[in-house]
Structure formats: C-alpha cells, structure tokens
Nucleic acid binder design. Structure first.
Lengths: 244, 244
DNA sequence: AGTACCGTAAGGTCAGACCATTGACTGTTA
DNA sequence: TAACAGTCAATGGTCTGACCTTACGGTACT
C-alpha cells in the first residue's frame, strides 16, 4: 500500500489514511496483486459487489477502479461478463506515463536519449553473451524488413523501434526489455522529433542496424558498442536540434 | 454533449473512442498541458465549474480528475481554495507506476538487480564527470548517517536507497534519476528480500558507499565502477539466495 | 494583539435511478 | 437439425441532488 514508502514511525495518533476511501481500496487491491492473491487475467468482483464488500458506495468503488486502470493494473470491459480484469504486464502504460512527464518538460528529450544510451549500451554485453541463433535470425529479419522499407521509401520510426526492442530481448532479461521498450514506445512517438524521419535517416540507421546484428553474430562486443554508441549519438544530435 | 472534443472525422462507421466521457476530458486536459496552456502550479477550475464547462455530471469530472491524479499530472487539495493543481516536478508517480508493473510481472529479483547493475554502473561516467561539490557533500553526509545507523544497529534498506538515489541525482539527468529511483522505491521493499537486512550487510554496504563517494570526489571512474560492481553483485547474490 | 468562532468554498461520499453494451439463452424458421 | 433472430440479464457508464468533511479567512470577542 501507499504506506510502504512512508518510512516514519508515526503510528500512534496515526494521521495518515484519513480521507480518500477510494485510495484505501486501491491500496488493498494492490496488496492482493502484490502478494499473488490476484494474478493477471483474474477478474475482480463487479462494482456493485465490491460496494457491499467494502461497505461503500458505487462512486467510491468506481474511482478506485479508475485509478487502478490509469495505473495500468486492470482493464475494464463493459457488457455481460465484463468487469475489471487484472492486466498482464504491459509496459505501454509506463511509456505513456513517461511521455506525460516529458510533455510537462520535466524531462528533456536529450535526457531521455542519454539514459537510453546508457541502458542500451549497457545491455550489449549481456546481449552478445546470451543471444541465441533464433535471436540473431530475428534481428537480421528485421534488418531486411527495414532495408525493404527504405527501398520503398516507407521507413518509419516504428521499424527502428522494433529492432531495438527485439535487440533488447536478446539479453533475456525481462526488466531490461521493459525499460528499453518504454523508451521506444509512445515516448518517441509523442515527441515531435522523427515525425517522418527522412529516408536518409532510415538508410543510415538500417545500415547501422545491420552492423549491430553482425557484431552480435560474431560476438564482437567492442564493435557492437561502437556502432550502438554512434547510432544513438546521432539520434541525440537530431533530438537536440528539433527540440527548441 | 460528449461529442464536443471528438476531433476525428469518425462519421462513417466510426469505431473508436465511443464510451468513457471522462477519458475525453482527461485527454482534453492533457492537451492543454502539452501545449502549455496549463503550466505546473496552475489550478484547474473547481469540479462544479468543470461540470458546467464540459456539460457533464460531477461524477464524470471527478473520475477524470482521479485519472489525472493517478497519472501524476495533478494533485488535489481539499478545503476552501483547494482544487486540482498542476503538479510540478514529480517523478515519483511514474516511478511508482513502474514499480507496480514490475512487482506484478514475471520479473524475478535477479533480473531487476541485473538491470539495476547496468543502469547504475552506466550512470557512473556521467556522475564522475558532473558531480558538484554540493553533490559530493550530500553523499558523504548520507554515508555518515548510514554509519551512525549501523552503530546504533538501526540500519535499514531505506538508508541505502537514499544513498543510491542521491548518487543518481549527481548525474544531473532526470530520466536516469527516475529510473534508479524506481529501482529503489517500493519495488525492493515489496520484494521480500532485504526485509531487515542484517547489520553486517549494513556495515559492509556503508563502507562501500563511502568508497564510492570517495571515488566520485577524486573523479576516479575506474574505482567507482569497481566498487559499484561489487556492491551490486553482492546484492545479486543475496537476492538469488532469498528468492527461491 | 491575540484568540476563538463561524461562514463559505471546495473536495469526498452517498443513494438511487436510468442508459448502453454485450454475451447467453431461447424460440422460431428454413 | 442448423441457423438465425429476439429477448433477457449482468455489468459498466452516467446523471441527479443531497449531505458531510476539510480548511482558509474573516469577524467578533477577550
């Protein structure tokens, strides 16, 4: 619950957790999720049912559900047999949250790119070490797709993002995949930059993608790091141009 | 009616974006934030006021506000002259959201630690380069606190987390701070491991923290990386013990 | 001057009603 | 029998209007 991070020992004469019944409900449900009583795919009781269990009105329950939904913990379906379903882990919401913060200029695009550079380069040792044959095949397949798109003049950021995400998966570490995925998710999309990313970009980018894939295949960490470094540095440069 | 803000030319066989008036309101307000019509510190009109402007009931407006609040875009104060205020810099919410997703997903503690290692070590070059005198003072202050806590037998993970987060801030990159913050936030807390972390741990950990701070002060990147590497590796080992 | 009180604006909650959506059941028809 | 259509019930989405709680600010009393 929210109290987790509280840190203080302000127990006696407890101040907290007055106000906001809906928040208490949110916290209770979060606990159920954390300790495994509820797992992805499960369905919460209906709103009217929850009202009775918690002894509150439907409005309150609904507000709690809205919060859980905004947090990305549940999705809500209407109709018979609808309800609130625990969502499987999805990084999209987090990405959206990042995009929101970014738009409030808490984050600059340059900062994000810098962070991205650290994570994506830092992941390379694991990738080089753990990439399987299937992984490498998949990478080259994406490179081919990218190449084709470039030839057709249809290269989009989406293609590049798919490559980077697939590359991240080669590290076989879900946490890393999630991180990199949120970097490439709605975030970059919502940033003005790279709106249709000139074909030249795509051409050069695809070339670097290919070099990366080859470096992975030959387990050449140094080469991979060098290419990735340049690759992202170029993005950084572009970003710093377009954002003010 | 709700259709006011629809925006699309969804006339023929329109599919999307029916349902959920509150979501439309959320989106509208987000737009206002994005394009700078609303800036941090501003106050939204009162709920009853928004009802009239949007032509919806208060329930709907409140749900929209709940979502915005959960997203971390506004904070809500009660009482006279209360209301919804655009929040300024609050990376906490996003971090919390990240932690939520992480904690309920298939992530193992080991994976998270591995990712943490990459990010925290990767950030060191920036930290060594950019840390100011104030930063370094703050680090040593935290080390002292930790030392004191160890002496009193009161060392907690919280103290360690504070050091790591402050260290992250030395990179002067908000995105990085956010990432590392979410690693050390409610996530590790809610993960079983390190529940009360034996004093021995604290002692050794504090020592390493001091070494880190000293390495930063003398701008010795290699040393910092070595210490951090060991520091986190030890955590990794402990984690892999305690989680099945 | 300081304190205590009260009014008011705002969010928080409640109760009950109605609409919209959707899947399942049932009955009719070819 | 199989396919279609109509009905029904469960469930989320919204509305109305009322009341409570909180907290700031002003006023009156000491």
């Amino acid at each position: 619950m929210a109290a987790t991070g509280r840190g203080e020992k302000d127990d006696l004469f407890s101040r907290v957790s007055t106000s906001r019944v809906s928040q208490v409900i949110v916290d209770q449900i979060k606990v159920l999720i954390r300790d495994g009583s509820l797992t992805p795919g499960d369905r919460l009781p209906s709103e009217r049912d929850l009202c009775q269990r918690f002894g509150v009105s439907r409005v309150t329950v609904r507000e709690a559900l809205r919060v859980l939904e905004a947090t990305g913990l549940v999705t809500i379906r209407v109709g018979a047999h609808g309800g609130a379903f625990l969502t499987a882990p999805s990084t999209d919401r987090v990405g959206e949250g990042l995009a929101d913060l970014l738009s409030m200029s808490v984050l600059t695009a340059g900062e994000v790119t810098e962070a991205r550079k650290i994570v994506e380069i830092g992941a390379l040792p694991l990738i080089v070490e753990r990439a399987t044959e299937d992984d490498i095949d998949a990478l080259f397949k994406l490179v081919e797709e990218g190449q084709h798109a470039v030839d057709e003049g249809e290269y989009t950021v989406d293609i590049s993002a798919r490559f980077h995400i697939r590359l991240a998966e080669c590290a076989h570490n879900t946490a890393l995949t999630m991180l990199i995925q949120s970097f490439h998710g709605p975030l970059l999309m919502s940033l003005r930059e790279a709106r249709e990313q000139a074909p030249i970009m795509g051409k050069r980018g695809t070339g670097e993608h290919r070099e990366l894939a080859e470096a992975i295949r030959s387990r050449d960490l140094a080469a991979a790091q060098r290419v990735m470094s340049e690759h992202i540095a170029r993005t950084a440069q572009r970003v710093s141009h377009e954002v003010e």
